[in-house]
Simulated scan of single mutants.
Amino acid sequence: MNHAALTALTDRWRPETHSFHLACGEMTMTLEDMAMISDLPINGLAVTGHVSAVNCRARFGDLIGVQPPLPLSGKAGSSKVKHSRLKEVT
């Protein structure tokens, strides 16, 4: 991972336009860019639907085949589905 490049891109991100402002012009991430970076497929059925806090973990399991782990007490973000786990499913 190139931390200098990530820092440079973070500094040039403009949330109002959802794009990067570079010396050569404006750059926007596309769905194809994210598919290539994450190696996740973009073809097929969309993962969508209403999710309430009551059934969130079960809904993840139904939609993508991976349930987030139970949250660890006192650790923020410990119940997120990790990117590496999503790649294992596809």
Rank of each mutant, 00 (worst) to 15 (best):
H21R: 13
T28W: 09
P15E: 09
A8V: 06
N43A: 05
L31A: 14
C56T: 10
M36F: 05
A53W: 03
A58M: 06
T7A: 05
C56S: 11
I37D: 02
D39R: 09
H18S: 13
L31C: 13
D39G: 07
V51Q: 00
G61L: 04
I42W: 03
V47D: 00
C24A: 08
T17V: 09
S19P: 14
D62F: 04
H18N: 14
L9D: 03
S19W: 07
M27N: 07
T10A: 05
T30C: 08
P15V: 08
T48E: 10
C56G: 11
L40C: 02
I42F: 03
T28V: 10
G61N: 09
D62P: 12
R14H: 11
G25N: 11
M34V: 14
D39Q: 11
S52K: 05
S38H: 11
A8D: 07
V54A: 02
M29N: 12
D62E: 14
L40E: 02
A4R: 13
I42Y: 04
R59D: 00
N43E: 09
S38Q: 10
S52R: 05
M27Q: 06
A8S: 09
R59K: 08
G25L: 07
S52P: 15
C56F: 07
R12T: 00
A58P: 09
V51S: 01
P41R: 06
G49S: 01
D11Y: 00
C24E: 12
A53M: 04
A35Q: 04
L9I: 03
R12N: 00
M34P: 15
E26N: 09
M29D: 11
L22F: 02
H18F: 15
I42L: 02
D11S: 07
H50W: 08
H18M: 14
R59N: 01
L6R: 06
R12Q: 01
A23T: 12
M36A: 03
A23D: 14
R14W: 07
A5Y: 04
G61D: 07
H18T: 15
G49P: 10
N43R: 14
W13I: 14
V51I: 07
D11M: 04
T30E: 10
D33T: 09
A4P: 14
D11K: 11
V47Q: 03
R59I: 01
G44I: 04
P15L: 10
C56E: 12
G61F: 02
T17H: 12
L9S: 02
A35T: 06
L45R: 15
A23K: 13
N43H: 10
H3G: 05
T10I: 14
W13T: 15
A4K: 06
T7V: 13
G61M: 06
P15Y: 07
G49C: 00
T10E: 10
G49A: 01
F20I: 06
T10Q: 13
N55V: 04
T28R: 11
L22R: 03
S52Q: 03
A23M: 06
L40V: 10
A4T: 13
T7L: 15
R59S: 00
A23G: 11
A8Q: 12
R59E: 00
V47L: 04
A5R: 09
I42M: 05
A5D: 11
E16P: 14
L22Q: 06
W13A: 05
R14F: 03
L6D: 05
T48C: 07
L22I: 03
A4M: 03
D11A: 02
R57K: 06
E16V: 08
L22Y: 01
N55C: 04
L31N: 13
D62T: 13
G25K: 10
